[in-house]
């Protein structure tokens, strides 16, 4: 045996005294009937809660998915926040954003809570700067949440008849109204860099504006619109350069919605996402008018 004469090799041929210690995890006792009932109630409640209109999270946490999956990209909190609720060409998944028959059976995830028309709000219990938000009239911008006469009037008008608001027709949930994407989301992002003092000043300033419409804040709005137009231009030009070459969404626009779904109604029910976007791009000036109208 090679190395068998090595004196440094000490073989311990004595058997161990006892079996080595092993970790024995404690086992929790079985559920009592009361606990079982409590858990069942909780699960039922949670499910109902998740399908309620104010709940915005995905049922499986997407952050968690990306942390577990080696393939999915990992994002920091700030990146997640920046991407949250943004729906544009950069964030959609081209493989699943195409309307499909099976989408009928999938719950839409809300990126923003649906405040309007869900329940009667007791406005006295909310600060005034949220009133318009509760009505779904938050147009973004410095005084977005304040209820002005104009926006209140518009709220009434919209309630009467605005088919776009009917969420059943909108596969991507609410928050996919044009103002919501292009006004609200952006102003939120703008506010992220704001300090506390600035925020206070803004809210106070907005409070004054709520009384007289043509205040100083009008300038802010104009600024914002200019910003918006600038950005729109960027999008437009980008579209011209790349979109013309290969446009995955346009592929489906040309074509046969009728393929999926056994009845003709399917294509009607689901407004194709890409078409919607293109329409938006085409009618951008229109959208701008819309936004100014709200203010």
């Amino acid at each position: 045996m090679p190395g068998g004469d090595d004196p440094s090799l000490i073989v311990n041929d004595q058997p161990q005294e006892t079996y080595p210690k092993f970790y024995k995890p404690p086992v929790a006792p079985l559920l009592t009937p009361l606990e079982e009932r409590a858990v069942a109630c909780f699960v039922k409640f949670r499910r109902a809660y998740h399908s309620a209109p104010l709940y915005t999270h995905r049922h499986i946490n997407s952050e968690f998915l990306s942390a577990q999956d080696p393939v999915l990209p990992r994002h920091g909190r700030s990146q997640i926040n920046a991407r949250y609720g943004v729906k544009n060409r950069a964030t959609i998944d081209p493989f699943f954003s195409v309307p499909m028959y099976s989408h009928r059976f999938v719950d839409d995830t809300r990126t923003l809570p649906k405040l309007r028309d869900t329940r009667p709000w007791v406005k006295d219990l909310f600060p005034e700067e949220l009133w318009a938000t509760l009505d779904g009239m938050d147009a973004g911008g410095p005084k977005g949440g304040f209820q002005t006469e104009e926006s209140a009037g518009r709220a009434a008008k919209r309630k009467l008849g605005d088919d776009d608001d009917n969420d059943e027709n909108d596969p991507y949930g609410d928050g996919y109204d044009d103002e919501d994407i292009f006004g609200w989301g952006r102003s939120q992002r703008r506010r992220e860099n704001e300090t506390e003092e600035e925020r206070k000043a803004r809210i106070e300033g907005a409070g004054k504006d709520a009384d007289n419409e043509d205040g100083d804040a009008g300038d802010v709005d104009d600024d914002e619109e200019e910003d918006m137009e600038l950005e729109d231009d960027v999008y437009d030009s980008a579209e011209d350069e790349e979109g013309g070459d290969y446009n995955a969404e346009a592929y489906f626009d040309n074509g046969d919605d009728d393929d999926f779904g056994d009845d003709d109604g399917v294509g009607e029910r689901y407004v194709p996402f890409s078409l919607h976007l293109n329409e938006l791009a085409a009618n951008f000036e229109h959208a701008d008018q819309d936004i100014t109208h709200i203010r």
């Binding site: 809660y49 399908s51 309620a52 209109p53 869900t118 329940r119 219990l125």
Partner: peptide, 20 residues
């Protein structure tokens, strides 16, 4: 129904059969 739980802002749609 609006009285249910305003403070938490919990959703409460009276027509929702699953309403918690």
């Amino acid at each position: 129904s609006n009285g249910h739980d305003l403070e938490n802002g919990d959703p409460d749609d009276p027509d929702d059969p699953d309403d918690p």
